[in-house]
Nucleic acid binder design. Structure first.
Lengths: 220, 220
DNA sequence: AGAATGAGCAAACAGTCGTTTACCGAGTGA
DNA sequence: TCACTCGGTAAACGACTGTTTGCTCATTCT
């Protein structure tokens, strides 16, 4: 038996977390591709060489940050899923949850929004994968809704992607609005509410039964 | 009188363009914040010191790239604006124009999509400004449509932003699909068509007259 | 024709970078 | 208790960075 086992591992994970936190702090003002290994260790108060005890390089740290960020994101979706009410209430809840989460986990959203189209391929791939899983979850919630009972899988997927992209865009717009500009924040959330309301109207009338089915151009 | 005036300026603009082209080439695989001055001059076949004859630093070159990219983008919008037909035809035209332009100006779209949320503040600001002007143009085209005659400015703006964001997301998805994957490209464009069609359905039924106006929460 | 301009170059500057090495010492397992 | 595992350190490595300086020489202006 060890005298007090686990102290080693706890200390290690602690400085690992310090590295992640330091990186996220620095990434609020720059992107991953310009983030230096020495920069991170300096911010974390650790010798440069110690970095290698935790990550192979900065890219691997970036991938770890992706998963950490989506961990907090999944907590968010749960908050909306709890109950489905009228269309307007669902929209208000959704937008509020996004706004709250952006305030609380600013760094995570900043990182995801920035690196989703960023220059580091493995990180972009990790984000795409997580986003895909997220979308599948959302589609799983949408499918059983009675209004969508006749939609096929492709259309549900299309709707889910639209929602996820809109949520991310709204989050990004909130980040650009800054943490202290309440007026700008209201403007962004109001726009998001109207866009979701517009889509809700589309959902109720799509595909439009009064219009003939579009001619397929798949095999011309 | 000069012997043959303008040769100086022409040569200068030529190597300036070589710098822009070299940078755009390198930016297909990395982001601006990690782009080095020496890297650009090396790719352009020019001595590092010569860079300063054209730009103050890499960030200024980035801002110049933003304006160059949007120059080609404005050509694109003209292609859609030429004529308005039935809803479905407009959607098909729009998506085709986006797909074509992504193929032809791959680098420009890649750059805009990447740096829109990137880590270089002045470049992000320049993109936001151009995107805002672009949205205003689009709203100017939407406003006179008879179906939208009763929409107020805020709602038109909201619709314009939705379209612009959707166009950019579609372009980005096409970039991720790769230039050679025709099947993936079809999947992306088909999704875009359905999303635009869904929004078109929403447009026709929004704000929903069968539902009471939402209670305003502006001043609780 | 002669003087002035200015784009481009080679060389050198001080810094910073990622990575490797050898080593220390606190937690660990028998 | 004793050997050992392993997270963290200091120092040094070559490579590369942005920027400055003084220069050349074709184009431009008078």
């Amino acid at each position: 038996m060890a005298h007090t086992p686990g102290i080693r591992a706890a200390r290690k994970q602690q400085t690992r977390q310090a590295l992640l936190d330091a990186a996220l702090r620095l990434l609020e003002q720059q992107s991953l591709s310009s983030l230096g290994l020495r920069e991170v260790t300096r911010e974390a108060g650790i010798a440069p060489a110690a970095f290698y005890r935790h990550f192979l390089d900065v890219v691997h740290l970036g991938v770890a940050l992706v998963h950490e960020s989506f961990g907090s994101l999944h907590a968010m979706i749960g908050a909306v899923r709890t109950e489905a009410a009228g269309s307007d209430e669902v929209i208000d809840r959704t937008v509020d949850v996004i706004a709250t989460h952006v305030r609380e986990r600013r760094g995570h959203f900043q990182f995801i929004a920035r690196e989703r189209h960023g220059g580091v391929a493995p990180v972009r791939a990790a984000i795409a994968e997580e986003l895909d899983a997220f979308t599948r979850d959302l589609v799983g919630d949408l499918a059983p809704l009675p209004e969508l009972s006749e939609w096929n899988d492709d259309d549900l997927r299309m709707l889910g992607e639209l929602y996820v992209n809109l949520a991310l865009l709204t989050a990004s717009a909130l980040l650009d609005a800054g943490p202290d500009d309440a007026a700008a924040e209201r403007r962004v959330t109001e726009t998001a509410r109207r866009q979701l309301s517009l889509i809700a109207a589309g959902r109720r009338h799509w595909p439009d039964p009064t219009r003939p089915p579009r001619p397929r151009r798949e095999t011309p």
